[in-house]
Amino acid sequence: MTNYLFSSRALGYLLALIVLLLLPQVLSPYHLTLVETGLSLAIMALGLNLLLRYAGVLSFGHGAYFAAGAYAVGLLNMYFPDNFSFELAMLASLGVSALVSALFGFVCVRHTRIFFSILTLALAMLMFAILEKAYHFTGGSDGIRIPLPTFFGIELTGMRRFQFLVGPYYYIVVGIFAAATLVMLAVVNSPFGKALQATRDNEVRAEMVGIRVKRFRWYAFVISGTFCGLSGGVWSFVNGHITPEISGWVFSGEIVYMVLLGGFMIFEGPIVGAMLFTYLRLYAVAWTEYWMLIVGGTLVLLVLLLPGGVTGGIAGLAARLRPGRGGGRG
């Protein structure tokens, strides 16, 4: 059964990858930049879901680690403009976000439920306040521009960002996204992932069978935060400009929104959610001044009517159409 499931998933992934790689042939450049945004945010949504789905704690401050990754790139460019290469930028965003999430996570994992959420929220706001107030080091609320980097020694001078975004960078984003998805899949299916779920289901019992609950939750926190950091790093080049608002609670809330929109009970749900959210928000903003009515109204309806998110809804529908067979969950 597992084997069958695994192979069907592998097939699905392969198909999805082929579709993604073929998109530049059919989509307009503008939509490619949106897909890029969606894919880079999807990495973060996967990261958040590791905590939400598998560790059973809700972070309402994951913007902080996204910001850590993005600002690692920004500050690298600000202070070492001569060494601004893509590979170094990625390493910096991974390293800095891992460090920050290890530090913040260390204090957060000692709590669960609403206290965990409140603490993560407060830490994100602390990060926000520092990024905004340290004007001379971080550019304050103006943020930092992210120019085009060199790429393994290749200079991209003369190339418009636009050409870069719809050209080589698209494939880079797809590659990083695919790698991140596979890593996360491996994590949740590893013994560590199983143990993590045990801590979620029953903390005391997990402790009894020898799982060091807080330690495990902390590891999960760091992995999750690092995914966010990577996401922030990748996204920063797409957007070209970063501001402290990505560390604010509103953005952190939007991350949770993405995950729930896609459906957090299914591994791929957050990816779908990040993609849908990117489109929903942008088209709402461009379409009407009252975009918050649309984005907020969608959220309220989602929570009330479709708690399993889009993928959950589809899976439920599929299960209903084929009575007697369970959906491929996990």
Binding site: T37, G143, H241, T243, A286
Partner: peptide
Amino acid sequence: DEAGGAKTQVELARKLILE
């Protein structure tokens, strides 16, 4: 509307120019 912060404005301008 210019409301929504720099992040929103970057996204909006990208849409206006490209799409």
